[in-house]
Amino acid sequence: MGLESLIGGEGFLTTTVNGLVNWGRKNALWPMPFGTACCAIEMMATFSGRYDISRFGAEVVRFSPRQSDLLIVSGRISIKMMPVLQKIYRQMPEPKWVISMGACASCGGVFDTYTLVQGVDQFIPVDVYVPGCPPRPESLLDAVFEIQKLVGEDRFDSGKHGS
């Protein structure tokens, strides 16, 4: 995570810097929408007028994984797509968080078939799951709040993304 991880310790400086960094991070999440199917349409509805995710600072959609820190996996992931998803996850810089949106991404949903990965969490780490098929935009907003909580609790010296 760069410079701040070299400081270490529990002193005044590190805790305050930690709070500042987290405050910045959680209010400016840059999502990488990995939208494949139905959930992608609800995700787009979340980004557009009526539900307006920009009220919570997460509207800067970046289609390049190297510029984003929140991966939203929305839709069914087939075995043909799984290597692509893993590659995109690897390309994202640390720290990064993952939302698995919808039943198909979380567990395969109604499609218990030969071609569908039964839950992306088998192969990449997932922080927040959103239930629904597809989830309503409000649910995705709620998941973003959950991610913001996680970001707020993160410690760069000992948290999930600590070294």
């Binding site: 494949t36 139905c38 069914r76 087939s78 499609f111 030969y114 071609t115 569908l116």
Partner: peptide, 24 residues
């Protein structure tokens, strides 16, 4: 990249059940 097996699933679901799958 989004192949889901709708047709195979159709061979294993009753006629009424497949309606649920069709809207995906």
């Amino acid at each position: 990249y989004l192949h889901t097996g709708f047709e195979k699933l159709g061979e294993h679901m009753t006629y009424q059940q497949w309606v649920t799958v069709s809207d995906r």
